[in-house]
Design a protein around this nucleic acid. Structure first.
Lengths: 108, 108
DNA sequence: GTCTATACCTCGACCCACGAGGTATAGACA
DNA sequence: TGTCTATACCTCGTGGGTCGAGGTATAGAC
Protein backbone atom coordinates (compact mmCIF):
# COMPACT_ATOMS: atom_id res chain seq x y z
CA UNK A 1 0.00 0.00 0.00
CA UNK A 2 0.91 3.64 -0.43
CA UNK A 3 3.29 5.19 -2.91
CA UNK A 4 4.33 4.57 -6.47
CA UNK A 5 7.30 2.63 -5.18
CA UNK A 6 5.10 -0.46 -4.96
CA UNK A 7 4.86 -0.85 -8.72
CA UNK A 8 5.99 -4.28 -9.89
CA UNK A 9 6.80 -5.42 -6.38
CA UNK A 10 3.56 -7.42 -6.14
CA UNK A 11 4.51 -9.50 -9.15
CA UNK A 12 7.96 -10.17 -7.75
CA UNK A 13 6.65 -11.24 -4.35
CA UNK A 14 3.90 -13.43 -5.81
CA UNK A 15 6.25 -15.27 -8.16
CA UNK A 16 8.74 -15.68 -5.34
CA UNK A 17 6.20 -17.23 -2.98
CA UNK A 18 4.70 -19.52 -5.60
CA UNK A 19 8.14 -20.79 -6.62
CA UNK A 20 8.25 -22.48 -3.22
CA UNK A 21 4.82 -24.13 -3.29
CA UNK A 22 1.39 -23.63 -4.80
CA UNK A 23 -0.92 -21.30 -2.92
CA UNK A 24 -4.31 -19.66 -3.37
CA UNK A 25 -5.13 -15.95 -3.48
CA UNK A 26 -6.21 -15.27 0.05
CA UNK A 27 -3.31 -17.32 1.36
CA UNK A 28 -0.89 -15.30 -0.78
CA UNK A 29 -2.17 -12.02 0.64
CA UNK A 30 -1.43 -13.24 4.15
CA UNK A 31 1.93 -14.74 3.15
CA UNK A 32 3.09 -11.44 1.67
CA UNK A 33 2.31 -9.66 4.92
CA UNK A 34 4.17 -12.21 7.03
CA UNK A 35 7.23 -12.78 4.81
CA UNK A 36 7.77 -9.04 4.48
CA UNK A 37 7.36 -8.70 8.25
CA UNK A 38 4.21 -6.59 7.88
CA UNK A 39 6.15 -4.08 5.76
CA UNK A 40 4.08 -4.77 2.64
CA UNK A 41 0.40 -5.61 2.19
CA UNK A 42 -1.10 -6.32 -1.23
CA UNK A 43 -4.79 -5.45 -1.41
CA UNK A 44 -7.22 -7.77 -3.14
CA UNK A 45 -7.86 -5.26 -5.92
CA UNK A 46 -4.19 -5.59 -6.80
CA UNK A 47 -3.81 -9.26 -5.99
CA UNK A 48 -6.49 -10.85 -8.16
CA UNK A 49 -5.96 -8.82 -11.34
CA UNK A 50 -2.21 -9.43 -11.01
CA UNK A 51 -2.69 -13.19 -10.66
CA UNK A 52 -4.95 -13.21 -13.73
CA UNK A 53 -2.40 -11.27 -15.75
CA UNK A 54 0.44 -13.54 -14.71
CA UNK A 55 -1.65 -16.56 -15.67
CA UNK A 56 -2.54 -15.04 -19.07
CA UNK A 57 1.13 -14.41 -19.75
CA UNK A 58 1.90 -18.05 -19.09
CA UNK A 59 3.86 -17.51 -15.90
CA UNK A 60 1.30 -19.08 -13.58
CA UNK A 61 -0.98 -22.12 -13.82
CA UNK A 62 -4.35 -22.10 -12.00
CA UNK A 63 -6.31 -25.02 -10.50
CA UNK A 64 -9.71 -24.58 -8.91
CA UNK A 65 -10.34 -26.69 -5.82
CA UNK A 66 -13.22 -26.78 -3.33
CA UNK A 67 -12.13 -26.98 0.30
CA UNK A 68 -14.67 -26.99 3.15
CA UNK A 69 -17.40 -25.57 0.93
CA UNK A 70 -15.24 -22.72 -0.35
CA UNK A 71 -13.74 -22.47 -3.81
CA UNK A 72 -10.04 -21.78 -3.87
CA UNK A 73 -7.89 -21.05 -6.90
CA UNK A 74 -4.45 -22.53 -6.44
CA UNK A 75 -1.58 -21.10 -8.46
CA UNK A 76 1.78 -22.62 -9.34
CA UNK A 77 4.71 -21.23 -11.35
CA UNK A 78 5.42 -22.50 -14.86
CA UNK A 79 8.95 -22.85 -16.22
CA UNK A 80 8.48 -19.55 -18.09
CA UNK A 81 7.38 -18.10 -14.75
CA UNK A 82 10.61 -19.24 -13.17
CA UNK A 83 12.60 -17.47 -15.83
CA UNK A 84 10.47 -14.39 -15.27
CA UNK A 85 11.16 -14.57 -11.54
CA UNK A 86 14.90 -14.81 -12.15
CA UNK A 87 14.69 -11.74 -14.38
CA UNK A 88 12.68 -9.74 -11.84
CA UNK A 89 15.10 -10.74 -9.11
CA UNK A 90 17.99 -9.33 -11.14
CA UNK A 91 16.00 -6.19 -11.95
CA UNK A 92 15.16 -5.67 -8.30
CA UNK A 93 18.80 -6.14 -7.28
CA UNK A 94 19.96 -3.68 -9.90
CA UNK A 95 17.49 -0.98 -8.91
CA UNK A 96 17.80 -1.50 -5.16
CA UNK A 97 21.59 -1.42 -5.38
CA UNK A 98 21.47 1.68 -7.59
CA UNK A 99 19.15 3.53 -5.21
CA UNK A 100 21.23 2.45 -2.25
CA UNK A 101 24.39 3.77 -3.89
CA UNK A 102 22.73 7.10 -4.68
CA UNK A 103 21.17 7.57 -1.25
CA UNK A 104 24.25 6.34 0.55
CA UNK A 105 26.47 8.77 -1.33
CA UNK A 106 24.49 11.77 -0.14
CA UNK A 107 24.83 11.36 3.62
CA UNK A 108 28.18 9.59 3.70
CA UNK B 1 14.79 2.12 -17.77
CA UNK B 2 12.86 -1.14 -18.06
CA UNK B 3 10.36 -2.64 -15.63
CA UNK B 4 7.58 -1.39 -13.44
CA UNK B 5 9.98 -1.44 -10.51
CA UNK B 6 11.17 2.02 -11.50
CA UNK B 7 7.94 3.69 -10.44
CA UNK B 8 8.52 6.53 -8.00
CA UNK B 9 12.26 5.97 -7.95
CA UNK B 10 12.88 8.95 -10.26
CA UNK B 11 11.22 11.31 -7.81
CA UNK B 12 13.24 9.93 -4.91
CA UNK B 13 16.55 10.23 -6.75
CA UNK B 14 15.80 13.74 -8.02
CA UNK B 15 14.84 15.07 -4.60
CA UNK B 16 17.85 13.40 -3.09
CA UNK B 17 20.28 14.98 -5.54
CA UNK B 18 18.72 18.43 -5.32
CA UNK B 19 18.83 18.35 -1.51
CA UNK B 20 22.62 18.58 -1.86
CA UNK B 21 22.79 21.46 -4.33
CA UNK B 22 20.76 23.05 -7.12
CA UNK B 23 21.12 21.43 -10.53
CA UNK B 24 19.56 21.67 -13.98
CA UNK B 25 17.74 18.97 -15.93
CA UNK B 26 20.45 17.66 -18.17
CA UNK B 27 22.88 17.66 -15.29
CA UNK B 28 20.46 15.67 -13.18
CA UNK B 29 20.14 12.99 -15.85
CA UNK B 30 23.90 12.51 -15.82
CA UNK B 31 24.11 12.65 -12.02
CA UNK B 32 21.53 9.89 -11.66
CA UNK B 33 23.56 7.62 -13.92
CA UNK B 34 26.78 8.26 -12.03
CA UNK B 35 25.48 8.19 -8.47
CA UNK B 36 23.64 4.94 -9.13
CA UNK B 37 26.82 3.53 -10.74
CA UNK B 38 25.15 3.26 -14.14
CA UNK B 39 22.43 1.05 -12.62
CA UNK B 40 19.66 3.56 -13.30
CA UNK B 41 19.12 5.98 -16.17
CA UNK B 42 16.16 8.37 -16.24
CA UNK B 43 15.11 9.31 -19.77
CA UNK B 44 14.24 12.89 -20.64
CA UNK B 45 10.61 12.00 -21.24
CA UNK B 46 10.45 10.99 -17.59
CA UNK B 47 12.81 13.63 -16.25
CA UNK B 48 11.19 16.84 -17.45
CA UNK B 49 7.55 16.01 -16.72
CA UNK B 50 8.61 14.81 -13.27
CA UNK B 51 10.48 18.04 -12.53
CA UNK B 52 7.44 20.05 -13.62
CA UNK B 53 5.16 18.02 -11.39
CA UNK B 54 7.45 18.36 -8.39
CA UNK B 55 7.61 22.10 -8.95
CA UNK B 56 3.83 22.38 -9.25
CA UNK B 57 3.44 20.50 -5.98
CA UNK B 58 5.71 22.98 -4.27
CA UNK B 59 8.58 20.59 -3.64
CA UNK B 60 10.97 22.24 -6.09
CA UNK B 61 11.75 25.84 -7.04
CA UNK B 62 12.91 26.66 -10.59
CA UNK B 63 15.24 29.42 -11.80
CA UNK B 64 15.99 30.01 -15.49
CA UNK B 65 19.57 30.98 -16.25
CA UNK B 66 21.44 31.46 -19.54
CA UNK B 67 24.92 29.93 -19.60
CA UNK B 68 27.11 30.06 -22.74
CA UNK B 69 24.13 30.78 -24.96
CA UNK B 70 22.06 27.92 -23.61
CA UNK B 71 19.08 28.22 -21.32
CA UNK B 72 19.23 26.09 -18.23
CA UNK B 73 16.52 25.57 -15.65
CA UNK B 74 18.04 25.17 -12.20
CA UNK B 75 16.02 23.42 -9.52
CA UNK B 76 16.34 23.53 -5.75
CA UNK B 77 14.35 21.79 -3.01
CA UNK B 78 11.86 23.74 -0.88
CA UNK B 79 11.29 22.97 2.78
CA UNK B 80 8.14 21.06 1.80
CA UNK B 81 10.34 19.17 -0.66
CA UNK B 82 12.68 18.20 2.13
CA UNK B 83 9.79 16.77 4.09
CA UNK B 84 8.67 14.92 0.99
CA UNK B 85 12.18 13.51 0.55
CA UNK B 86 12.26 12.31 4.15
CA UNK B 87 8.92 10.56 3.60
CA UNK B 88 10.05 8.90 0.38
CA UNK B 89 13.25 7.79 2.07
CA UNK B 90 11.25 6.06 4.78
CA UNK B 91 8.91 4.53 2.19
CA UNK B 92 11.83 3.23 0.19
CA UNK B 93 13.45 1.74 3.28
CA UNK B 94 10.23 0.04 4.30
CA UNK B 95 9.63 -1.52 0.88
CA UNK B 96 13.26 -2.47 0.23
CA UNK B 97 13.54 -4.08 3.66
CA UNK B 98 10.24 -5.89 3.15
CA UNK B 99 11.26 -7.26 -0.24
CA UNK B 100 14.65 -8.21 1.11
CA UNK B 101 13.05 -10.14 3.97
CA UNK B 102 10.70 -11.96 1.61
CA UNK B 103 13.34 -12.84 -0.97
CA UNK B 104 15.90 -13.74 1.65
CA UNK B 105 13.50 -16.11 3.39
CA UNK B 106 12.96 -18.17 0.25
CA UNK B 107 16.53 -19.24 -0.46
CA UNK B 108 17.84 -19.20 3.11
C1' DG C 1 -30.08 -14.01 13.22
C1' DT C 2 -26.05 -11.42 13.03
C1' DC C 3 -21.23 -10.86 12.84
C1' DT C 4 -16.58 -12.11 11.47
C1' DA C 5 -13.50 -14.50 8.58
C1' DT C 6 -12.81 -16.64 4.38
C1' DA C 7 -12.69 -16.48 -0.70
C1' DC C 8 -13.43 -14.91 -5.03
C1' DC C 9 -14.20 -10.90 -8.19
C1' DT C 10 -14.75 -6.01 -11.03
C1' DC C 11 -14.82 -1.09 -12.01
C1' DG C 12 -13.15 3.59 -12.61
C1' DA C 13 -9.75 6.90 -11.48
C1' DC C 14 -5.20 8.02 -11.29
C1' DC C 15 -0.14 7.92 -11.51
C1' DC C 16 3.97 7.08 -13.73
C1' DA C 17 7.19 5.29 -17.29
C1' DC C 18 8.53 5.17 -21.85
C1' DG C 19 9.50 5.57 -26.88
C1' DA C 20 9.10 8.69 -30.41
C1' DG C 21 9.32 12.95 -31.84
C1' DG C 22 10.23 18.21 -31.88
C1' DT C 23 13.06 22.76 -31.29
C1' DA C 24 17.38 25.17 -30.87
C1' DT C 25 22.39 26.53 -29.78
C1' DA C 26 27.66 25.71 -29.43
C1' DG C 27 31.72 23.80 -31.01
C1' DA C 28 34.47 20.68 -33.77
C1' DC C 29 36.00 19.16 -38.07
C1' DA C 30 35.86 18.86 -43.01
C1' DT D 1 29.76 26.07 -45.96
C1' DG D 2 27.94 21.90 -44.26
C1' DT D 3 27.45 18.35 -41.08
C1' DC D 4 27.88 16.02 -36.85
C1' DT D 5 27.92 15.62 -31.84
C1' DA D 6 26.74 17.33 -27.49
C1' DT D 7 23.97 20.22 -24.89
C1' DA D 8 19.37 21.70 -23.32
C1' DC D 9 14.75 22.17 -23.23
C1' DC D 10 10.06 20.19 -24.31
C1' DT D 11 5.27 17.30 -25.48
C1' DC D 12 2.25 13.57 -26.82
C1' DG D 13 0.15 9.02 -26.82
C1' DT D 14 0.15 4.52 -25.04
C1' DG D 15 0.19 1.25 -21.76
C1' DG D 16 1.04 -0.96 -17.22
C1' DG D 17 0.12 -1.07 -12.48
C1' DT D 18 -2.01 0.62 -8.04
C1' DC D 19 -5.88 1.62 -5.27
C1' DG D 20 -10.35 2.48 -2.91
C1' DA D 21 -14.88 1.16 -3.23
C1' DG D 22 -17.96 -2.01 -4.07
C1' DG D 23 -20.14 -6.78 -5.06
C1' DT D 24 -21.19 -12.01 -4.23
C1' DA D 25 -21.25 -16.03 -1.32
C1' DT D 26 -20.14 -19.70 2.33
C1' DA D 27 -18.66 -21.37 7.17
C1' DG D 28 -18.57 -20.98 11.90
C1' DA D 29 -19.17 -18.62 16.27
C1' DC D 30 -22.16 -16.62 19.61
Amino acid sequence: MTSALMSGVSELLLLNLLAEREMYGYELARAIRTTTREAIAVGESVLYPTLHTLEQRGWLRAKRRVVAGRTRVYYSVTSAGKRRLALMNREWRRIADGVHAALGASHG
